[in-house]
Amino acid sequence: MTDIIVNGMSFALPLFIIAVGGIFSERSGVTNLALEGFLGAGAFIGALFVVLTSGWFSPGSQVPMYLAMVFAMIGGALYAVIHAVLCIKFKANQVISGVVVNILAIALTDFLTSQVNAGIFGQSSDKFVMTVSGRLTFQPLANIPVIGGFFTNVYPFEFIIIIVAMISWYVMYRSRFGLRLRACGDNPYAVDAAGCNVGRLQFAAVMISGALSGLGGMCFAYSVFGNYSVSIYTGYGYLAIAAMIFGNWKIPFTLGACLLFGFARAAGYWLIQLMGLPGAYSDLIMTLPYVLTLLLLIFFSKNNRAPRALGEIYDKGKR
């Protein structure tokens, strides 16, 4: 039981923050299939920072990890500019732009990773080796049955994610910026009439989306992979999109969806281990989140309401 909670949480939370990134972009009316590219590009910048500065910190220090997360957010936000420019300034088809941004991210980071490795470290390798993040256990709390699992072997980044998610929630639902942002997704013309710059709002939303995805990607690099390589593009970005849609483009529901994915996955792995099934069965477990999403979408799609102006290219002169 504890294992399921530990593994479930450490998978669900990074996924959640990526999905929150998606919510920011989509609630502002910009379709975002580029989460996959954002998280990879962000994690690349973070990992690049780690390997470049590896001499600066004493071994075993956790400081580079936190700095890497900051850099991953910056990197993700900067990379997101491509999507923002394509969608908002160049008025390209947002779905196509998302796909292009993903393809470009894979090509670009793959190329740069091997170039940096060859140029600076003189070795031919396609990955940046990093440590796996340390884990914390809170002793008195961890002994509580069942709930104790939430306090055992916790990655430090889980707290960062929770804090960032809370800030995001506040910005989205309690600030003027958030109100306008959500209005952009439903009726950009009204926002324009109210005297706001729709393009600028959407631009900011897409960049926030990139920053949060970068953070999520960095967390995956520090937990699931333990290094940075192209293998980070395993589709977690798309899974986050599924969680977002399943969560009806709302932050609290999306958290629920991510927890469901995480726990379903962890429970599946646990079950396989318990029954001593061969490794191939884990492939079936991997399909769980996707099958769940599809089924639940079929049942709940009536209640599902995408932002009304999602994917529409905002044209001031149209109306």
Binding site: L33, Y238, A242, Y290, L294, L297
Partner: peptide
């Protein structure tokens, strides 16, 4: 009324695994 992009991505993974 499920967006074709989403269902296609889901099916991609389901087929793959």
């Amino acid at each position: 009324n499920i967006n074709e992009v989403v269902s296609a991505i889901m099916l991609n993974y389901i087929f793959q695994y």
